[in-house]
Design a protein around this nucleic acid. Sequence first.
DNA 1: CTATATTTGAAACGTTCATTTCATTCATTA
DNA 2: TAATGAATGAAATGAACGTTTCAAATATAG
Lengths: 193, 193
Amino acid sequence: MPKEATFSRKEVLQKASAVFHQKGYNGTSMQDLVDSTGLNRSSIYNSFGSKLQLFLEALAFYQSSNNARMNKSLLGHHNASDTIKAVFELYLQDILADKDKKGCLLVNCKSEMANQEANVQSFLENNQERTLAMLEDIVYNGQMERVFNETQSASDYALYLYASLQGLRMTGILHQNEQQLRTLINTILKVIH
Amino acid sequence: MPKEATFSRKEVLQKASAVFHQKGYNGTSMQDLVDSTGLNRSSIYNSFGSKLQLFLEALAFYQSSNNARMNKSLLGHHNASDTIKAVFELYLQDILADKDKKGCLLVNCKSEMANQEANVQSFLENNQERTLAMLEDIVYNGQMERVFNETQSASDYALYLYASLQGLRMTGILHQNEQQLRTLINTILKVIH
DNA sequence: CTATATTTGAAACGTTCATTTCATTCATTA
DNA sequence: TAATGAATGAAATGAACGTTTCAAATATAG
């Protein structure tokens, strides 16, 4: 039997996604990835194929850990109003923790590569669909509970919330005043109540 | 007397900003700029200094032509409600015209470089301040006209509109359904009415 | 212990990067 | 028309790029 890999794939992806997050895809060199992951150049190519494939895996890793965090946070809330607040609270915490103004990796990626790499584009389209579905579900529940506005459809409000989350995340890069951001979130959420 | 420059600086900046918009800063090579501007490599360095300085000038050019377009559009409207609608309409037209999913150069730039280049960051902070001031002015007028909501301050609503514009622009990259985007804009604007 | 299959390290691959150099071309004006 | 000085073209700079190569090291199973 051969020698087995000594590194944890998840740890490598975590470190790789941190570098991509910090510097962007085009701004990250293979040397950056070697340095940050601690892996040998050859090992990266053996295990991940290419810089682009490693990026795609790092993207998926980032997405799934974000999803896990999101689901964990949502579990605690049993009405739609609290649930949607928790979603925005999670984004707010990301913003406040993002002292070096990196923004969201997925949003950055959309800016940088949606028009360049077909694989990245379809990944992002998929991500968008799933996020919209999640939001629509929350809104739908809220409307059933009679706590959310019913003048527009759940899917209309889902798109509104999706755009608002992206706007909040982008705004938060250069505007990290917690109180003003909280006010902003309240303003956003007024529409659906 | 020496020979004078035969190229138009504005035309060069327009072409350069188009390439940067298409490929991003890190994704654009000096060769791309030579090809697209038609200028000689040496002439670019003589006239603009470096790739980064050219980028900063292209950014300023993009911003000022956007502003010019915005001002021209706003001139036609004499009440706050129509004015703010015109602002969003301009963004919508940008989105619908953006078939190759480039997004907004300024937003992309914030994603790619706000955390990397101090000059870019301060440019963007400046841009953000000016945009917020413009929006606050519109909202303030609308509140004076008694057509806008007064439960929150003009600056609160300005931040809300600023975030909404960025969210709309980001969402529009992968979601170009005009009818749904118009519904989204209506939803956004309901808050201030 | 030996054979096996893979990870690893280090060097090298050819290409492309941003930038510089410099002789030549060109439009101006004295 | 001759002197001027910027614009130009083409080549060269060295560094950095993503990727490949391959011998050496390594851990497992027989």
